[in-house]
Amino acid sequence: MRAWNLLYVPLVCYVLAVSVLPLLFLILTAFTENDMSGAISWDFTLANFGELFYDRFYIERMFYTIGLVMMVTLITLVIAVPVTLAIAQLGYFWRTVWLVGLFSSLALSEVLTVYAWQLMLAQSSGIPGWLQALGLIEVTESWWPSFPAMTVVLVYFTSPVAVIVLFSPISRLDPSLAESARTMGYGPATIFLRIILPAIQEPLVRTGLLCFMLNIGSFVISQQMGRPSDWMISVFIADFMSSFSIPLAGSMALMLLASVLVCLGAIFFMVRPKAVAA
């Protein structure tokens, strides 16, 4: 080993400490006995997983969470791509205004975002109240907690991230790609679907994965904006942790992690570059 390679040792140790150790701890606790007092006995057991699979509730919540987050990711991308294309075509000033605005929205914590949306969707003070005052609709209750409210806030939370991540590849997109398709007789819809989207396929997948990761562990938005029947798996994990069932929470988190890895693997497999005959 060359001497300068030793410089990497502290960095490697740091990475191990902040990423591998917590994961290792999670895996270990998932296989330990559940002591309801909160103490962990380090005897190996599969009982936690047995408890999770005892009825279908947690498994259903798991698939519900993954399905919901996939839907939220899809909606986010459907919104983010045209918005980013529009921002990329703006002049320097307005483009900067938009990007600063998006970055500012990221500065708000999940809690503040949720609080703002709760106010906006409240029966009397928010949008429903205004619409009722204008005589457009009849409102009998707040629009939150509800599944649509939770979905909207999840999309709101990840959309700025998606736009910011997509902005760089989209702004680097060669404008003559679309122009050349126009000279071939194609209209905007065909150009968008057949030229622009395939051209940004890779960044689109990367952005989708990032949005998926950001939302899969969403706790505050799910718990505050959704009804108990809408809650995502992270709410139940947190619930187990607060009730000192840490090994059970660990096994649930591990199961979520495994499911997410399977999903990501499947996505990578589906969108891998096609082999081309030379």
Binding site: D174, S176, E179, S180, R182, T183, G185, G187
Partner: peptide, 14 residues
């Protein structure tokens, strides 16, 4: 443009 039926080779080739 799409109705002119002109072919074009761009500098970047596109």
């Amino acid at each position: 443009t799409e109705k002119r039926e002109f072919g074009m080779v761009f500098q970047s080739l596109a």
